[in-house]
Design a protein around this nucleic acid. Structure first.
Lengths: 253, 253
DNA sequence: CCGAGTTATGCATGTTTCTGCACGTTGTAT
DNA sequence: ATACAACGTGCAGAAACATGCATAACTCGG
């Protein structure tokens, strides 16, 4: 059990439950209370949690909101995230989109992985702090409060300076005719800019997003390399993607 | 059961039922009446509820906005942060350094404040999400794991694109001869770059940092406008600063 | 492949904080 | 006015905590 693993687990618990009890974590991981307390102290020093008597709380109650959002479709998201995490090759450079699904990807990363991750989400960046082997590059810009990612002209410009092997893209809708869509025009533009900087773009979309169309188009199907989902691979809605040469990574793959 | 959990539950009940009875809560949580009374006392002291004989009532929504006071006894960091928060004028553009002290500044900000905040700390950015009136601009770059801020060439370059009225700078040491110092050479360079982009730089340093020298020099005293601290304003260690024209904001100011 | 240096972990120590009980005081109701 | 419940305070035991130290694991250079 590596220190990075433990700290990632603590942050995960904080996001999920809104609290962490030192003794519980220690018992669960089978190590001493002291080590857990040390971790909590470290995380608190880095400003990633708030230390209280008996355990720790998220740094701001606002972050606890992820607790609710993740409870919506935890299994589905986690399955997709786990599959997507396997696309990240050691030593590669990967762009990670913002959102709860890509956050789940971070939690699913093996703690020993060595790679470079570029992101425009401060939340993703913070979650990667315990992963010692991961070099994190954060794209600056104006922060969009709704989804807590940077967007806008400055962010798009910052994206032009980077190049990556892989882009893991989160969307809110995958629709046969509307294509890949999301709920904000600025976010759509940012996602498009990021897709242009990576050799391959893989879309992450759990089952409830398949067949759904959101207001703003991100990309047409023929500009992505693959789709990671948890529906059956022969879902009829996905026929158009397969025809466009998109590889569908379902549950079994 | 964490103390913070109990108090959150009490606040939850207040919002839902409009009242709490001490005995009921105690029986429900399986602990003594005294502990519940202690919690109610604390919450009342923080202005989050109104204590009545037998239990507690919610404070009126009109008064609730003034209940920004912390539950815990404000430590020296919080005192410094609260003072520094008052330097931020409505409508101004402020650069916020990373670190736990500046994070405390965010928590001390009135929720109604309208301003622009530029930062190189993803943690600060995430903490600002609930502040609707605050426009947040995040400086991109390589993420330094130790302190969870972006540093390096890209971050310094990003900083060149911005201009601000005020820079709230956190350091680990304020020393008569060594000047303002910090523990990492890259961070020092970043702080220096940020100081160059603001009209005024104020240093935040609680008492335990006064007289301390860390390895890397950030700035000489004559390049900062003021120092916010919680020592007595006539501390002899600060004589050099006063001579350099730095205004010292102590406890009483 | 080995050894020195570094880091991480667990244990022991002393300190701080929390909790429940006892007791005297204050407020409310009859 | 009296009885009873709620209250605050002081105190003691218990739990959590920080710190120092010794041991084990890991890293890096030879």
């Amino acid at each position: 059990m590596l220190a990075a693993e433990r700290q990632a687990l603590v942050l995960d618990r904080l996001a999920r439950d809104g609290k962490v009890v030192a003794k519980e974590i220690a018992a669960e991981l089978g190590l001493s209370d002291d080590s857990v307390r040390r971790d909590l102290r470290e995380l608190a020093a880095a400003g990633l949690c708030q230390r209280v008597y008996g355990g720790a709380l998220p740094v701001s109650p606002a972050l606890a909101q992820y607790a609710e959002r993740r409870l919506v479709e935890p299994d589905s998201k986690d399955r997709v995230a786990a599959r997507a995490a396997r696309l990240i090759m050691p030593g590669s450079t990967v762009i990670l989109d913002g959102g709860t699904t890509t956050l789940a990807v971070v939690q699913a990363l093996p703690s020993t992985l060595t790679c470079t991750i570029i992101t425009h989400s401060p939340t993703i960046a913070a979650a990667l702090v315990p992963h010692d082997g991961v070099e994190v590059f954060l794209l600056g810009g104006r922060l969009f409060k709704h989804s807590a990612v940077t967007c806008g002209a400055a962010a798009v410009e910052a994206a032009q300076a980077i190049t990556a092997d892989l882009f893991l893209l989160g969307v809110t809708g995958v629709h046969p005719t509307a294509g890949l869509t999301t709920g904000d025009v600025e976010e759509a533009a940012m996602k498009r800019a990021l897709a242009g900087r990576a050799a391959d773009t893989y879309v992450l979309a759990s089952a409830e997003k398949i067949g759904v169309a959101s207001p703003y188009r991100v990309l047409p199907f023929d500009e992505i390399a693959g789709l990671v989902t948890d529906t059956a691979a022969d879902d009829p809605t996905l026929a158009g993607l397969r025809e466009a040469g998109v590889s569908i990574l379902g549950i079994g793959d």
